[in-house]
Amino acid sequence: MNQPQRQTDRKREAILQAAIEEFRQHGFDATSMDKIAATAAVSKRTVYNHFASKDELFSAILLQLWQSAATHEALTYAPEVRLQQQLEDFLYRKMVMLSDPNFLDLSRVAVAATIHTPDRARDMVEKLGKNEPTIVTWIKAAQNDGKLIAADPLLMADMLVGQLKAMAFWPQVAMGQPILNQQQQLALIQTATRMFLGYYGTPSTL
């Protein structure tokens, strides 16, 4: 009774991986459900049994992309550990994800597709908005502990992560710039952390 379910799961995963490959190589518009079915070695009917449309399939991939990001960004506030160390550890994990070539490739496809179809981007934002990033929860906990000043946690999170994306994500996605080397990554992480704590930290932070 469990075997058919496992086979169904395997087929769904094969379809997702095939779609990722096709989208990466050819972009959203040039990719068809026929191509995805061929790459996944399943029938077109099987693809449609799992995903009603190419848009739905693409949304599933974007959701998978976000879930991968959320896994890398897992963070729990530890009052006994210095904020600088906690933030640097978090930003390092974030940097690992942002520097992954597969993640960058799929991000390029996602950006291109959502630019041309704003409705698709809006739907994804609504889905992802239901899940609060762990960094926002962490910031709230640090504020409650008196380690960060009272300010908008969402804005604070955007300011922190935005510093990484401004140099280690968007230039690579939009302009094809090379991935930062390890020394550049560490320097950016340390600078972003110090700037964040310098502005939002309280006297008890350091």
Rank of each mutant, 00 (worst) to 15 (best):
A70L: 10
Y199W: 09
F90N: 07
R12K: 04
T114I: 10
G146L: 06
M195Y: 07
L106M: 13
S107V: 12
M159G: 04
E73R: 09
A60F: 10
N102W: 12
Q172C: 10
F28R: 03
D145W: 01
D158Y: 10
D119A: 15
I135T: 06
K140M: 10
F58R: 08
A192T: 00
M95F: 06
M33D: 01
D34P: 03
A166T: 10
Y92H: 15
A41E: 11
A74C: 12
L16V: 00
P133K: 01
R45D: 09
R45Q: 14
K127M: 10
D158M: 14
I115T: 15
A192L: 00
E132K: 15
T71I: 12
R45I: 02
P153D: 03
H50I: 02
P171V: 06
A14C: 03
H50K: 03
K94G: 11
P133A: 09
D158E: 15
L180K: 07
T205M: 06
S32W: 08
L87D: 01
A18D: 00
Y48A: 01
L104N: 07
L188D: 02
L91V: 07
L16D: 01
A151K: 08
I179M: 11
Q25A: 08
E13K: 06
S53K: 08
I179P: 07
Y92F: 14
K54N: 04
F90M: 12
E73S: 08
N102L: 15
F90G: 07
M33P: 08
D123P: 08
F23D: 02
F58W: 02
T193I: 04
G146V: 02
W170T: 03
N144R: 14
L148R: 05
A78N: 05
F51C: 02
I36V: 05
L104Q: 15
I149Y: 03
D152H: 06
A78Q: 15
D145C: 07
V136L: 03
S53G: 10
H50A: 02
A30S: 08
V111Y: 09
Q163Y: 05
M195A: 15
L91Y: 11
V161F: 12
I189E: 00
M195R: 07
G176N: 02
A150T: 15
A41M: 12
F51N: 05
